[in-house]
Write a protein that binds this DNA or RNA. Sequence first.
DNA 1: TGGGATTTGTTCGTATGTATT
DNA 2: GAATACATACGAACAAATCCC
Lengths: 238, 238
Amino acid sequence: MTTSHVEEKKSRVEVAYLSLRYAIIEQALEPGTKLPEDAIGSVFEMSRTLAREVLTKLQYDGLVEVKRKRSATVARPSLTEAQEVFGVRKCLERAVVRQICERWSKVMEEELEKHIRAEDDAIKADNNALSIRLAGEFHIRLAELSGNSLLKKYVDEVVSRCSLILALYARPHSSQCAVTEHRELIKAFSAKDVPRALELMNEHLGAVEQRAMIPGTATKKLDLCDVIQKYAGQIDHA
Amino acid sequence: MTTSHVEEKKSRVEVAYLSLRYAIIEQALEPGTKLPEDAIGSVFEMSRTLAREVLTKLQYDGLVEVKRKRSATVARPSLTEAQEVFGVRKCLERAVVRQICERWSKVMEEELEKHIRAEDDAIKADNNALSIRLAGEFHIRLAELSGNSLLKKYVDEVVSRCSLILALYARPHSSQCAVTEHRELIKAFSAKDVPRALELMNEHLGAVEQRAMIPGTATKKLDLCDVIQKYAGQIDHA
DNA sequence: TGGGATTTGTTCGTATGTATT
DNA sequence: GAATACATACGAACAAATCCC
């Protein structure tokens, strides 16, 4: 499926990048976990040169930290950084909401409805990791529909960072509320009610932020290779 | 001066990165100009590996385009991309204005006044390239003073992109107006008048955008190495 | 504190793809 | 349209720093 013609290499880098990204966002890799170039390379069967490329990309996303002459590690954002990320996220998503209201269409509505159904399914299946990811991807999807690709890129970044932050600091909570809030947003879009949509988005992000601001307790110890390989499998068949 | 202790390599990469960045922003390197790894490497006396690292960074900033197995080139943003960048910039800078008004202090005022004087001097000295750069850096400085480092990073990126866009599309204009507008902004900050500051920022960015949306004519042909080396010198002594 | 093992930093040769005549 | 020149993609190997016992 994924095995394309010319882009054999790009595929490998892409798979590694997405695998790690998912593993970090879904909290399978704990912040602080070391990600040595060799280990990444052997898991994904590539040389250190390419492994390093992957780690650099993740660094730009704020998901891994790279200190000079030290192993890259899964990022551990400070509380201050977390607040900064949420601040920027709010401002970007307000812009998204404005754009969406302007361009709203039946097609968009159906597309988002479909996504929300997937979120619902994940919750019913009790797949918590997937729920977290899908909740974030709803916002990325919105940004995509704004039609502004730079805006989408930035939202993508901050949402990923937020997922990591939730992993670090969030108290346990039901993802169900996110789904409800997402549905409300769509209603406001349909009504082209910009102030209402902005208000909903503010509340929604405020709620997410609130959940984040209490230090959590989670600490799992898992084998790096096992975790990554599991995610690599998912990507390959996607 | 710059030659630090341990960071010999990082210095070289950093110098190359900043030199190219300035050269592109000040329009010394025309969009479309090829930037082969070898050429970058020999100008800055480093291997292709490091040259590549520099080009990758510039690619993330949106200042160079890298197509598979082709020379990197100075980016040539489309009109659509230009509009997207300005859209994101407005939304980010609104957030900056809000933050600045909250945190406003005498120290900040003095700091910004100093910057504006430098802008003034550049104009009086008829140093157009420097004027363009300083006008952009005023906004980056503002973002820095917002206290949100992620916001600063994003503003840095969009402002750089805007400079490039102005290089591509702007009709000739005086930078003097920018200085006047910058002074007005500071007045609003001092009065902690958020609505007024937001309005001024909107107008100011609107004016910049207006200047950008008419295709320009500039086309110079210069030697890549000469241009870059000139900028490398500037950085080294900075 | 010391020193061997590990991991990153960097170079550069070969392979492969692209432009040009 | 083929051959040549040129530029990038990738990886092996060595140097240097860090880690860890």
